[in-house]
Amino acid sequence: MNGRVKLSDISKKTGLNVSTVSRALSNPERVSEETRLLVQEVAAQMGYVGNAAARNLILGKTDTIMVLIPTFPGQPISPVFTEVVRGICEEAKAHGLSVMLQQNLSQAFSSDDTTKFLRTGIVDGVLLLAAEKWTTPHAFRPKEHLLPVISVLNDLTSYGLVSVVAEEKQAFSEIVDHLAARGHRHFAFVSGPRETTHE
């Protein structure tokens, strides 16, 4: 068979209605066991691959989250950001989600650009990595249901965003205590870019 296998092709092969074939593949609990097995067997034989885009359009979701990553002119992406993104990707995969990465040329994130990705249905949610600034979108409507925008590494709860942050002050305190307990009295601190609050 030439081209992509369609539900109508499986319908012809099994003698079942297209709607029945569709239910057998997407909602198998809504058809009999005999019908489910028949449709799945024929679909496998014919090499049928479901159209994820069409399915997601019907369900109103993409199973994709976007991570906006700040970058600085002339500097590589922070290895801290790289590790955080790696963790996000691993966790997303465990939940059957895809991750889309988007570069941002500073730590000031445009709320209008961010919500555009959500309003147009490109992604289901956005993670802002180390964002320093966030403002209410110009076209914001109080009753509008916007999908999740979450700040990672920086506390933006004052802007109304859920934030996931590290206990950095406690961590630095424990590092110093650890070194001091081993007799060290002189420390050097290597700072990151001035543009970032995360050293």
Rank of each mutant, 00 (worst) to 15 (best):
residue 74 G to S: 12
residue 74 G to W: 06
residue 74 G to T: 08
residue 75 Q to A: 13
residue 75 Q to V: 13
residue 76 P to H: 08
residue 76 P to A: 10
residue 76 P to I: 09
residue 76 P to Q: 09
residue 77 I to V: 15
residue 77 I to C: 06
residue 77 I to A: 05
residue 78 S to P: 01
residue 78 S to A: 05
residue 79 P to N: 05
residue 80 V to Q: 06
residue 80 V to E: 03
residue 80 V to I: 14
residue 80 V to H: 15
residue 81 F to P: 04
residue 81 F to M: 03
residue 81 F to L: 08
residue 82 T to R: 08
residue 82 T to S: 14
residue 83 E to F: 01
residue 83 E to H: 11
residue 84 V to D: 04
residue 84 V to F: 06
residue 84 V to G: 08
residue 85 V to F: 02
residue 85 V to A: 03
residue 86 R to M: 08
residue 86 R to V: 05
residue 87 G to A: 02
residue 87 G to L: 00
residue 87 G to W: 03
residue 87 G to M: 03
residue 88 I to S: 07
residue 88 I to A: 08
residue 88 I to W: 07
residue 88 I to N: 03
residue 88 I to D: 02
residue 89 C to P: 04
residue 89 C to R: 10
residue 89 C to A: 13
residue 89 C to Y: 02
residue 91 E to F: 02
residue 91 E to P: 00
residue 91 E to M: 01
residue 92 A to N: 03
residue 92 A to M: 07
residue 93 K to H: 09
residue 93 K to F: 13
residue 93 K to D: 13
residue 94 A to C: 04
residue 94 A to R: 14
residue 94 A to L: 10
residue 94 A to M: 12
residue 94 A to D: 09
residue 94 A to S: 13
residue 96 G to H: 14
residue 96 G to Q: 11
residue 96 G to R: 09
residue 97 L to I: 02
residue 98 S to F: 07
residue 98 S to H: 10
residue 98 S to W: 04
residue 99 V to C: 05
residue 99 V to R: 01
residue 99 V to N: 02
residue 99 V to T: 10
residue 99 V to E: 06
residue 100 M to R: 06
residue 101 L to H: 01
residue 101 L to D: 06
residue 101 L to C: 02
residue 101 L to A: 08
residue 102 Q to N: 13
residue 102 Q to W: 04
residue 102 Q to P: 00
residue 102 Q to T: 13
residue 102 Q to E: 14
residue 103 Q to K: 13
residue 103 Q to W: 14
residue 104 N to H: 11
residue 105 L to D: 15
residue 105 L to P: 14
residue 105 L to S: 15
residue 106 S to I: 10
residue 106 S to H: 06
residue 107 Q to S: 06
residue 108 A to Y: 15
residue 109 F to E: 02
residue 109 F to I: 15
residue 110 S to Q: 03
residue 110 S to P: 01
residue 110 S to G: 05
residue 111 S to M: 07
residue 112 D to G: 07
residue 112 D to F: 07
residue 112 D to Q: 08
residue 113 D to W: 03
residue 113 D to G: 00
residue 114 T to R: 07
residue 114 T to L: 04
residue 114 T to K: 05
residue 114 T to A: 09
residue 114 T to V: 13
residue 115 T to H: 13
residue 115 T to N: 00
residue 116 K to M: 13
residue 116 K to I: 01
residue 116 K to L: 11
residue 116 K to E: 13
residue 116 K to S: 12
residue 116 K to P: 00
residue 117 F to H: 14
residue 117 F to W: 15
residue 117 F to P: 00
residue 117 F to E: 02
residue 118 L to W: 04
residue 118 L to K: 10
residue 119 R to Q: 14
residue 120 T to A: 08
residue 120 T to M: 12
residue 120 T to E: 15
residue 120 T to P: 00
residue 122 I to D: 08
residue 123 V to A: 07
residue 123 V to H: 07
residue 123 V to S: 07
residue 124 D to A: 11
residue 124 D to R: 03
